[in-house]
Amino acid sequence: MVTRSERRDAISSQFQSLVKNRPTPDGTDDGDAILELDDFSVFYGDFPAVHRLRLGMPRRQITAIIGPSGCGKSTLLNAINRMTDLIPGARVSGRMRLNGEEVYGNRMDVIWLRRRIGMVFQKPNPFPKSIYDNVAYGPRLHGKRDRDELDTIVERTLKESALWEEVQTRLHANAMSLSGGQQQRLCIARALAIEPQMVLLDEPTSSLDPQSTARIEALLEELRGHYTVIIVTHNMQQAARVSDYTLFLYEGEQIEFARNTQLFLNPQQEQTEEYIAGRFG
């Protein structure tokens, strides 16, 4: 019979090497929260996909959301930039504040909100246009027309996404001619081109090979400190590697939300412990 503390130590050692203890960008102990959730719920009809969350996502750090399938991770992510508005029958209750402004308030303009939040989907979905036009789409939507300005933006974001070297000679090739990993990096570049405050990634590497995954994880490391990143992943090791904070959801409920050093090495809830030990999920 393995004792609890033995189990604890086993988990600990597994994650010890992965979890990072990085200083917060502004030097304080806990970054201030860019996104505050206060009793926040999302319903599909009567079914609560996400139930009464209470937390604050830290500014310019990386937060991972983990949990078994169907626990509401993607729903929560979609609710942040109000993509749930597009789903008929979806409604929310409670409060969500972005930089103090009510996301679901009457005065919030959805378009304005979405231009401040970039989103990357699970399956890469570049537009069937050229690579250049994909990245330039967001700025053009903003109203930027100047060719030189767009060129600069495209180059900068493709470099940020570690894609520039591979495509700089064929910026006008169709985006669908890229490989899966390249397409996903293109989608990240596209999201970064509008200089968002927050980047949401929904299982960005789950359909990619390990090499592409590694590149994207390296990319996320570089984004830290400049952008707030929220990443949904079902890969706990990835969460431990990449993020600073982690939120564990189970069946829509918030089980635990803490810094990685705590959640992975010293989880407070038993369910958390069971999950990261791999006993279910």
């Binding site: 993509m83 378009i111 979405r114 989103m119 989907f121 979905n125 537009f127 967001g138 989608c187």
Partner: peptide, 25 residues
């Protein structure tokens, strides 16, 4: 739908999604 969602997530309005992405395809 994935193309539409990508458009919406970038902050395009409904008509812009139709005009830029759905109609050309």
């Amino acid at each position: 739908d994935s193309i539409r969602y990508a458009g919406y997530a970038m902050g395009a309005s409904r008509w812009q999604v139709v005009q830029h992405h759905v109609l050309p395809l």
